[in-house]
Design a protein around this nucleic acid. Structure first.
Lengths: 233, 233
DNA sequence: TCAAAAGTGTTATGAGTACACCCATGG
DNA sequence: CCATGGGTGTACTCATAACACTTTTGA
């Protein structure tokens, strides 16, 4: 059968907003753009969708090729489609946001891939509409993390309650009461206490926990309320 | 400057999942597809993105041209990108979902535009991946309506509490207690009681309410809890 | 021995839920 | 006058939020 007649063909790309947490602050991974225009400026990780792949597959490929990351949390965010968003040629971009354990990639990335982690508070200006993408991704992260146990994706396999609390405090920019926090988190039955402690940040040491992955998968849709409602947005 | 070299160009389309409420059930608006392939089968309202418009603008245009609708609630849902989703030619489709007051368009649409409202329970099979789009749209509607005062978009300017409750019950497929429902809804300060009554469904008549549009816009991000948490998903 | 972080318990308030009766009116 | 749907109040339970002291141990 014939192709559709007289329709505008255009390019389709993906861009990834990659969040990491280093134990005290949220960071985002950026690269120096390798293409004209805007070569050398800071940019999200992105690439064009190839003819045989979906946008999800393109996002996975881009992450793998540009950072070595594999198997990280990835979620479609929004498709940006302003006709002039790329000055060279009309390009539609579907943004994905990714959550990674920064420790797994921190060294590797700056050495091999010439990318850089920026604290969200110190992010440089970005090309095209990438700053809107980041803004939207931050909002979605807050929104979704308030309702679902999403932030564990940012932590190592073993983590402590103080680490987890510090992560929530960074994302929501709120100080939380540790007694209420630990009671709520533990009441979800998502955590399994480990026998060993992290002695890195205190003399007493803090017990490690791991995710109960079975409950995690089943309860992902469950509503958490780690954050009091009134602080949600 | 030159165009990007050696990249795959493709078509980009929008498809709209249009929800309406007729007072007792949720409905979706479908049309007979006007193009080969699958000419004559049921389909969502859609169209290709033109060279000078964003996908949002394309969705607004499609709605206007295919149904006469204007100024309705419209929100980007997801971009569907399987390489073979359209058998004729690679086409990326960004799905939008729309909420409309069915009464404003019910007659006009079937007479002028040959589209048809289907109860969600009696939806025919659809072309391409349109059924996945509808499934995702229904989930998002439920999710978002549980947290935000979204469903008012489906009602006329003046509506009664029994109508509103019936709408929530349809969306969540749950019977709600009318005493608790009215207390919660009224406590949001989103409703303004009108002096007149709708005598259509009872002898006593039910008071009309209108939206407090100022509070509505300000509080849209507020979390509602009309639906008890445990029934959310 | 002391400084610094980890860990834990109680109480008060408010939200959520279950539940039943009276009201207004058209036929 | 009565059947039908509209409208309202109360009491119980449970989740939330505020709050302070003890424990551990390396330096």
């Amino acid at each position: 059968m014939n192709k559709y007649q007289n329709q505008t063909h255009l390019l389709a790309a993906v861009d990834c907003i990659i969040f990491g947490f280093d134990g005290s602050q949220l960071k985002i991974l950026l690269i120096h753009r390798a293409l004209e225009p805007e070569l050398g400026k800071w940019s999200l990780m992105g690439g064009f969708i190839q003819s045989n792949e979906s946008s999800e597959q393109a996002a996975v490929r881009v992450l793998k090729v540009l950072t070595g990351m594999d198997g990280v949390y990835l979620e479609q965010l929004y498709t940006f489609s302003q006709p002039n968003r790329d000055p060279i040629e009309r390009t539609l971009s579907t943004a994905y946001f990714a959550l990674v354990d920064i420790a797994l990639y921190e060294k590797q990335i700056s050495d091999e891939y010439h990318a850089e982690w920026f604290p969200l508070t110190e992010m440089p200006s970005l090309i095209f509409d990438h700053e809107s993408m980041v803004t939207m991704a931050r909002e979605k992260l807050k929104y979704k993390a308030a309702l679902h146990p999403l932030l564990f994706e940012l932590l190592p396999k073993k983590f402590t309650l103080p680490q987890l609390q510090s992560l929530y405090q960074s994302v929501f920019n709120k100080v939380l009461d540790k007694r209420n926090f630990s009671r709520k988190v533990l009441s979800t039955n998502l955590l399994i206490k480990q026998p060993d402690k992290d002695k890195g940040t205190s003399k007493k040491g803090a017990f490690y926990y791991t995710l109960n992955t079975k409950n995690y998968k089943e309860d992902f849709q469950a509503f958490l309320n780690i954050i009091p409602n009134s602080h949600l947005l």
